[in-house]
Amino acid sequence: MKTAFAFAAMLTAAPFLAPLAAGQAQAADTGAPLRFVLIPKTVHPWFDKANNGAQAAAAMITQTTGRKVEIEYRAPQTADVSSQNDIIERAIATHPDGLILDLLDEKGNRATMDEAVDEKIPMTVFDSLPPEGMDITAVGADFCEQGTMAAERLANLVGRKGEVAIMMGVPTAPNHTLRAECEKKVFAKYPDMKVVATGVDNDSIETAQKQASAIMQAHPDLVGWVECDASGPVGVGQAIRESGKTGKVKEVGLDNLNDMIQLIKEGVAESSASSRPEMQGYWAVVSAWQRAMGQKTPKYIDTGIDLLTAKSL
């Protein structure tokens, strides 16, 4: 046991006796490859699409300028702020030329982002807003506008009357709750519409399918669905198809996952309000690159929202 204590003491002391990190050369002015670390909220196909856009931007910059740009994609396994902060801190330890972040909660991420500022690592955020007072470019779409667009589309499809349901994503994710609030506001405008159920899918297709099936059993007069995350619409669509209510229960989804597009093509979902993840990843890298070059960048880059329908696909 003495050995264990001695080793524990040695381990405790060693890191703090270790020589300070040798100054990590910033690649910005040396012609060396530019390295950006992209950290999304969690592992999810939506972020893979954002990463595809980021890789496309890196290839474009490499081709245009002749200077290699590398994107390292490091996703937390769970959508949890402390897990994301751990990843961000570890990325800071590698001294990249820029961090590209999709923040889970700008206030909860603040302390870690301050560490990046202390280490003079420029940051760009996408699909989220930066903490107050930080000079950081935000790339993305308006979440409320996206939810409002979906809800208005559904209201018009069902003649602005009847029972509707909302599938929440993760109740603790600010963008999901914001979309839900804006969707509720739209339905509240129409006196003949009533939100009779709100499911919680925790960004899981399987959970969304189970919840949607149960809700449709409990509310046989349900006429339509809107959702708040990318997984929800896929699960709801599968539940509509399984219950044989295709066409009777309308769905307006969110985002452009392959499953969502398939549901629209099959006529299960009527449309989807998509927030263009590839474009967000692309412009986040362009912004990060400009920052690394010492250029000032805009406060906000709006990548807009697409309404995907069977015709537009």
Binding site: F16, A18, A21, A93
Partner: peptide, 10 residues
Amino acid sequence: HFLTTFNMMI
């Protein structure tokens, strides 16, 4: 990047 003071603190 592993054995640096910053990383050990993390």
